[in-house]
Design a protein around this nucleic acid. Structure first.
Lengths: 343, 343
DNA sequence: CTGAAAGCGCTAACAG
DNA sequence: CTGTTAGCGCTTTCAG
């Protein structure tokens, strides 16, 4: 039915004229303000439908100084890091939190200098109402940007050194404690850990959780090697651990990738998993189900992280002053299940 | 009481005043137009620096009817599908193509009804200058939207049924031919294929490529099963193939996931790969390196796909009328390499 | 409740 | 080359 003139989009004035009211009344009706008589409100409603009117956002933004967009800035230095299912899930979470609102998601890969310059421009030119910052490593230049701007910023994960005013984080410490407790419950006693780079808050927090659990169990937490969250790094760390502590009977790896690397090395050394050595990972990535044996690990609510960050940011934009949030993790026990193709 | 920035952002008038010129001269200087004297141009330049002026994009957008944003709309019905490294790479490509421009990327997950409604609103309210549409399945409602709007639309991959005016695609047909030829060259003769759902153009194209190669080799292309691109689907299809064509000596699976599923089934049936049965996949996903043996497969330039789509869209927004693009694929031969943990 | 009028900050058309 | 004058389409006082 719509003989929509494909080029000229209807304006508010046209709606007002058609409804036989003034432009300001039309505006009020459209924005659901109270001071409009039912009759005129209906007339406007109808005119909107008939004309297929949608307010021009640029004009509205100019008048209200509210853009209707939030940006997700991902600070990742090397290309590969973003190409990870993790971000897809974050984005999915954000997207579903935005679904019922009139906000739009702007994505900025701010790892490169150009990217962070772009983010800066976005802020200065008021192209967004707020920012979500993911994946900051210690001393990230974006952290400064965040402090200098008046635009609301919500952090995904705490950056090391300094609690930002607003953040949503996964309970990494609690998760690591859970993982380690699981090993303790399994009867293991000489438990080692492979940590991530301690310049990252995640790595730090997981290491703390490990020590928490070890202390509670009265075990010595000194079988420790540091790595970089990668599979290769995990393998190297496992090799070092075996050399330094040949008596170890379990390993908590602070990421599934590192755990996978460790599994390979353990097997190469003839240590059976989980009979000789227990292994627990962290993240519950796809890889945790591709190893043999499948990895017991800590699941993080990644999608929820995206959703909650968004909800928090919108609340702030709306004038609220919420408190930071910690999202619970959960243990996923996998054991000797045989994966489809690694029979 | 309100969250307004502590210090007002500088406006063009302030720059003009500081530089001692009229607002229009300031505007021209800032936009690098020609008709400005060097002296005034410098003065404006300096004022901009000193004040840290960045044009307000909403105002500019309102005046020029150009927003400075492109949207990537991903049409995916079920949650999991977006959580894939594929999109991360696409986004990475887009992002790098956008890096040197003043355009911003808006991401819309348009699989759900709400999502596609949102996309529609974005178009109608002129919140973007152009759209990139990924992952359309036959009869996708977004295809209609694309036709109705005057906003430029670039497709990532051709939707089935009808060549859109502008698209960038991967040479799926050529890739499938490559894969099949590789099997032929390997001495296999009774080659089967597991296709994707033929309602997708990708699946159709890869199936065509298979038949191309079989025809050229003078082989019969009738060992065929259809699946859904998933691992489970691939496994089921492989089972059906073995029952229907127990003599088969090779399989071209139209995706790595399906190939992985097929590998498991082949092994369960005691068929050694690649000695008894040759297997080639498509996509070159991470999983191709996690199977045993690692998968020979067809690599797609995913990041380049994102880049070229963006470049094309920006060109169109700029008034150009480019021709569609096909990106080449390449064969990755893997064979018996032993992966780290599946010793 | 209603409408007229004054901007939001920028660009663009037009005379000087 | 330069400045003046109108808007872009919407919101928002402020009188009626």
């Amino acid at each position: 039915m719509d003989t929509a003139p494909s080029h000229r989009l209807p304006t508010l004035d046209e709606v007002a004229e058609r409804a036989g009211v003034s432009r300001s009344v039309a505006s009020r009706a459209i924005n659901n303000e109270i001071n409009v008589s039912p009759a005129k409100r209906d007339a406007v409603q109808r005119a909107v439908e008939e004309l297929g009117y949608v307010p021009n956002r640029s004009a509205r933004a100019l008048a209200t100084n509210r853009v209707g967009a939030v940006v997700l800035a991902v600070s990742t230095s090397h290309p590969g890091a973003f190409a990870d299912a993790f971000f897809a899930q974050i984005i999915y979470g954000i997207s579903s939190a935005l679904e019922r609102t009139d906000f739009t998601l702007t994505l900025v890969l701010a790892g490169s200098p150009e990217g962070s310059a772009k983010l800066k421009r976005i802020v200065r030119s008021r192209r967004a109402d707020g920012i979500m910052l993911m994946n900051l490593h210690g001393g990230d230049p974006l952290a400064k940007l965040a402090e200098q701007t008046a635009m609301p910023v919500v952090f995904g994960g705490r950056p090391l050194g300094g609690e930002p005013r607003w953040y949503v984080d996964v309970d990494n410490r609690g998760g690591a404690r859970l993982a380690t407790e699981h090993l303790v419950d399994g009867g293991y006693r000489r438990i080692a850990t492979i940590t991530g780079p301690l310049s990252l808050d995640v790595a730090e927090a997981r290491y703390c959780g490990f020590r928490d659990a070890m202390a509670v169990a009265g075990l010595s937490p000194d079988r420790v090697e540091h790595a970089d969250f990668t599979e290769a790094g995990g393998a190297a760390a496992m090799t070092r651990l075996l050399r330094a502590h040949p008596d170890l009977d379990a390993v908590f790896a602070a990421s599934d990738n590192m755990a996978a690397g460790a599994l390979g090395v353990l097997r190469a050394h003839g240590r059976a998993v989980p009979d000789d050595v227990g292994v627990v990972g962290f993240d519950d990535l796809r890889i945790a189900q591709l190893t043999y044996p499948q990895l017991t690990t800590i699941h993080q609510p990644v999608q929820a992280l995206g959703e909650e960050m968004t909800r928090m940011l919108l609340a702030i934009v709306d004038g609220a002053r919420p408190t930071p949030l910690l999202l619970p993790t959960r243990l996923v026990v996998r054991g000797r299940v045989i994966s489809t193709w690694c029979t």
